[in-house]
């Protein structure tokens, strides 16, 4: 089985400081991987290197592209990488403002990716947008409203619809439930789980919330100071952590 994403020896430095280093893993189709660690552990740096937002200083990120088979996304041309990121990839930002166009209606936000890949039929674009708003539980009467009129949870769901509308295969998520109320988080988690299952998505989710990864991720990677401390099956890493840092991390979670 060919991995969807094969990451080899990724390193990113900020001057003398290490962003992340020595990261290796294979992500297979349909797998959801969580990356946890405290602030500054390098998890967001790593995610941005994988998604092509940051150029790593070392290593390769090989993606199994539908049309051509495996390609190194680190060395590919910017135009190709952008094409990937609006067709086969998606990126969900922690702050929906970073992932949405706040001055464009909800329908336009969802439709943008369709139009970017050549959709030119207004009626069809609108129909698809309406359908997707429904799937993320936004009433179709809100289709012409701007996201600035939406609550935080709705904005985040809109961002997810906007990202998934072109049927991507790999979704990068940076703290997708951060900054949301616990009750809103729960609804979003359930939504994400359903979409991942229905669409057969692979996903890499960066979060500092261990409860979120337990519910969403099949696999877990623990990072500290730019290094991967431990990785494995999510429940195994959380219930039987091997590394000292992971044991500390898991035992530090407050019980509800």
């Amino acid at each position: 089985m060919t991995p969807l994403l094969s990451v080899k020896n990724i390193e990113k430095r900020y001057g003398a400081r290490i962003g992340c280093t020595g990261v290796n893993f294979d992500l297979f189709p349909g797998e959801v991987m969580g990356i946890v660690g405290e602030s500054g552990s390098g998890k967001s740096t790593l995610l941005n290197c994988l998604a092509g937002h940051l150029a790593p200083d070392q290593g390769s990120v090989t993606y199994d592209r539908t049309s051509t088979g495996p390609v190194d996304t680190v060395t590919m041309a910017e135009a190709e990488r952008r094409m990937l990121s609006r067709t086969e990839w998606a990126f969900v930002h922690q702050n929906p403002r970073d992932g949405l166009r706040m001055g464009v209606s909800a329908g336009g936000n969802v439709g943008e990716r369709l139009m970017a890949v050549g959709a030119r039929h207004y009626g069809n674009i609108r129909e698809t947008s309406t359908d997707w708003l429904g799937r993320v539980e936004i009433a179709d009467s809100r289709i012409d409203d701007r996201p600035s009129a939406f609550s935080g949870g709705m904005q985040q769901r809109l961002q997810i619809a906007r990202n998934l509308v072109t049927g991507p295969r790999l979704v990068f998520m940076d703290e997708p439930t951060g900054g949301l109320d616990v009750s809103v988080q729960a609804r979003l988690l359930d939504l994400l789980r359903g979409l991942v299952r229905e669409m057969g998505l692979s996903a890499i989710i960066v979060t500092h919330d261990l409860a979120v990864v337990r519910l969403l991720a099949d696999r877990l990677m623990v990072m500290k100071d730019g290094n991967v401390i431990e990785q494995g099956l999510t429940d195994q890493v959380l219930d039987d952590p091997q590394a000292a840092y992971t044991q500390l991390l898991v035992s530090s979670v407050l019980q509800v």
Binding site: G232, L233, D235, Q236, D239, D240, Q242
Partner: peptide, 9 residues
């Protein structure tokens, strides 16, 4: 039991 399930290493 947990080891069989892969929950414990």
């Amino acid at each position: 039991m947990r080891m069989i399930y892969g929950n414990y290493l």
